[in-house]
Simulated assay, not measured.
Amino acid sequence: MLSEGSGYVWWRPLVGTSEGVMLLLLFVACLGVLVVLLRGSYRLHHRKVRGEMDVEQAKKEKSTDGERATITIEFVMVLPVLLFIVLLLVQVMQLMVGNLFVHYAAYNATRCAVTYLPVDAREAGGGDRNWMMLNQEFRRPKYDAIKRAAAMSLVSVSGKWTEDMATVGVDVDGFVAGLKEHYELLGRPVPVWVERMAGERLRYAAANTRIEMLEMVSMDEEGRVFELVEDDFYQAGVREAVTVRVVHRLNLSVPYVRGLFADGRFEEEGAVGAYALVQAHVSLTNEGIDPALPERPSIQRRNYWGRDWDYGRYYP
C-alpha cells in the first residue's frame, strides 16, 4: 500500500542501518570538536586584543611563534571537519535536486500513459484501447514507452553506466545522434559531453528506473491510498484516473558522506558507488475516449432553424 505524498525519506538510512548510526554519531562528534576549537580560537583572539600579552620584545616573539603553531594546529584539526560539512551540503543539495527530477519524471511518465494508453496497438502487440500488458514475457510497447519517458527525464541526474554492463532497451545511439543534430541545426559546435557522457547517462537512467501502475483503493482524511497493480495487464476506464509511480536509484556521487543517505550499493559488475531509492507518483485523467458513435438515427430531426439535421457530417 502507498499513501499519497510518500517519497524519499532522507533520515531513514541514518537510523535504519548500523553504518548510518555510526556516521551520525561521528558527525555529531565532529560538530562538538568544531565548537570547542572555535571557542578556543575566540578566547585567544580576545586576549590578544585586550593586550594581556607581555610587552617585552623577546616574549612577544616567543608568543608570535606560539600563535603560529597554534593556528597551524587549529587549521589541521578544523579542515577535515569543514570539508566534511561542505561535502555533506553538496550531497544534500544533490538529493533535493534528484527528488525534484524524479517527481518530474513521474509526471512525464503519467502524461505518456494517459495519451498512449488509449491507442489501439493490437497490430503491434500492445493491446486494445485503455489496456496495457505488464508481463515481461510478452511484448509491451506501451509500458516501454512510459518507461522511456521517465528515463529521458532523469538523464540530468544519472550516473555512469557503460555499454557492456547491461541491456537497457533504449536507443542510445539515436539519442546521441539527435543531440548532435540539434546543435548542428543551431549552428553551434557539439559539446564534448554529448559524445562522452550523454549515452552513459541515458543507459544509467534506463537501467536504474522502473515504473509501477497504481490503483486508488480508498480515500481518508490523510489523503488517497494506492495499491500496486500486480496483474499481468493494466486496464483503465474512460476518464478514469491513471497513476504511475516512478522508482529510481539515484546516484550518490559525493565521497565520504554518501553512506549517510545510501539505501544500497551497486552490485553490477563495473558499477561503483552507492544509491538512494527515490520514488514519486502522479495521477492524471485518462484521455481514452471511445471514438465509436451510436447507430445512426432512423428518424429525421430538425435543428433550431427548422432545417433537417445533416447526419452525413458525422456518419458515412
Rank of each mutant, 00 (worst) to 15 (best):
L44P: 06
T70P: 00
S63R: 00
M96P: 03
M93K: 08
L95F: 02
P80M: 08
L83N: 13
T72Q: 00
E67Y: 01
I73G: 00
E74C: 11
N99G: 14
R50Y: 05
V86D: 03
I85C: 10
L44D: 06
Q91H: 10
L44E: 09
L88D: 06
Y116N: 12
R47K: 10
L38C: 11
L79Q: 02
R43M: 11
S63V: 01
G66T: 07
I85P: 00
V90D: 09
T110M: 05
H103F: 12
V86L: 03
Q94M: 14
K48T: 15
K59C: 10
L89W: 12
R43C: 13
Y116C: 11
G40F: 07
I71L: 01
A113S: 05
M96N: 12
L83M: 12
G98F: 05
V76K: 03
T72V: 06
G98A: 09
V36A: 13
R68N: 11
L100Y: 10
L87M: 13
K60N: 07
F101E: 07
V33E: 01
V86E: 02
A109N: 04
L83V: 09
Q91A: 13
H46E: 14
V92C: 05
V35Y: 07
L38M: 09
E74D: 11
G51Y: 03
V35R: 08
T72I: 04
L88H: 07
I85V: 15
H46A: 15
H103E: 10
G66E: 02
Y107T: 08
D54P: 06
V33A: 05
I71K: 00
K60M: 12
T72N: 00
D54R: 03
L44W: 03
G40W: 03
V114H: 02
K60Y: 01
K62L: 06
F75W: 04
G32S: 12
T72L: 01
K59H: 10
Y116E: 12
Y42A: 15
L82I: 15
M93D: 12
L89I: 15
E67W: 02
G32T: 15
K48L: 14
E67S: 04
H45V: 14
V114G: 00
L89S: 11
A105C: 11
Y104C: 07
L117E: 08
N108L: 12
A58Q: 03
F101K: 03
A105G: 07
L95H: 03
A109F: 04
A69N: 07
L38V: 14
H46C: 10
K62G: 03
V49T: 09
K48Y: 10
F75C: 07
D65F: 03
H45P: 01
